[in-house]
Amino acid sequence: MRVNLLLNLRALVGRAYPRIIGAQREPSWIFFETLLPLLTIAAYVYIYEYLGVPQFVGFVVLGGTMVAFWMNILWSMAAQFYWEKQIGNLQLYMMAPMSRMALLGGMAVGGAVMTSTRAVATLVLGVLIFRITLVVLDPLLLLAIFLTTLAALYGLGMIFASVYLLYGREAWHASNLLQEPVFLVSGFYFPLKTFVTRLGAGGLWVAAGASIIPMTLGLDAMRQLLFPELLAYGLLRPDIELLILLILAPVFIYLARISLAYLERLGKEQGRLTLRHQ
């Protein structure tokens, strides 16, 4: 038991390593993953300023920063096993004695840490460039919400990774399909409550549906905690949002475990864990 725990811990660190260390070796990330997102953010900032509601600028900077995590989920969690299968890593992962959760966990921890460095860089630049004041009244709650959001978000990413296990290029299309719609329904660039004020009861359902994606509630809660003057735009109270996220995280991680076990079995039956010519 202890031996297996140690094995799986090492496996998790091993799998996270290329994401944390390897990914920093390519300096082009500063351009692609820090400066480019700022351009989109700038567009929204100018719109809000033009409309005379500059108080929303901070809102948008935070949302635009968090986009990085969703991109990471789509391209480095969901679509990941597709690439791994192509280069021949997947079969080596699957024949190793590690738990599949160590593999998914390593991808998740590595992805979360790597993306956090990018997000922090974008956020710092955004705050400096657009002269935003953040008021941190409850740093502990903020940290708890951020970490729980990541846990739930990467739990969802783990489900995606396993569901995509047997797909080929379709994985790529599916990820593309999940990109823009989620930008919209998760309210990366506007308050989530807009759905409710604009669409009434129907909007509430949209918001509730979007809350399956943990970034939605996490972002809503973090905004309330960082921009107290906009508290009225929050969907639910931050502590309630935290509670929901605390439930989502373990549920997602558990579901990822079952679905990967099921799909791995199916893959072994159908010969789809490996490519034919490997």
């Binding site: 799998r15 290329p18 390897g22 390519e26 280069i87 080596l92």
Partner: peptide
């Protein structure tokens, strides 16, 4: 396997081998 292209290009040879060894604890 012959012609295998496993591992990650951004890592060194040593790091790649180390990474795979970690999956065996």
């Amino acid at each position: 396997t012959g012609g295998e292209t496993s591992g990650y290009g951004l890592l060194t040879t040593r790091e790649n081998v180390w990474m795979f060894s970690q999956f065996y604890g």
